[in-house]
């Protein structure tokens, strides 16, 4: 049975439905912080905060990949195929990228404030 892109999106939407409100609040905070960063762009130094956010993302990716099987009630030993390992790695990377991106605005703000 074929799943359309819209169908997959609908399933993901249902998956995240319980967290839509907190995710919305988080998005609003992130946007607020980005606005603050733009307003203080004279003090902006992108590289160090981006590196810190990248590091946070990397740690999150590794932690997520290690914890994913346990989160599903399985153990690492139960990963059987190349596909299982690829899925764990892929999901870990996805989570790492999301957390890395989400942590950039607060880290950048903190950097601007700290270097005042």
């Amino acid at each position: 049975m074929a799943f359309s892109a819209a169908g997959i999106l609908a399933v993901l939407f249902e998956l995240f439905r319980p967290w839509l409100l907190p995710l919305g609040v988080l998005a609003a905070i992130e946007l607020g912080l980005l606005a603050l960063i733009v307003a203080r762009r004279d003090r902006l130094r992108v590289r160090p905060p981006a590196l810190i956010a990248g590091l946070i993302g990397l740690v999150a990716a590794v932690a997520a990949a290690l914890l994913l099987p346990a989160w599903s009630g399985a153990s690492m030993q139960q990963l059987q195929s190349l596909l299982d390992f690829a899925a764990v790695a892929g999901m870990g990377i996805g989570i790492g990228v999301a957390i890395g991106l989400a942590s950039y605005p607060p880290v950048q703000c903190w950097w601007i404030l700290a270097k005042r």
């Binding site: 399985a74 195929s81 596909l83």
Partner: peptide
Amino acid sequence: EEQWIPWLMKDRM
């Protein structure tokens, strides 16, 4: 083939 992915689908998706 027995794999983790179908379990993940059943448990979470």
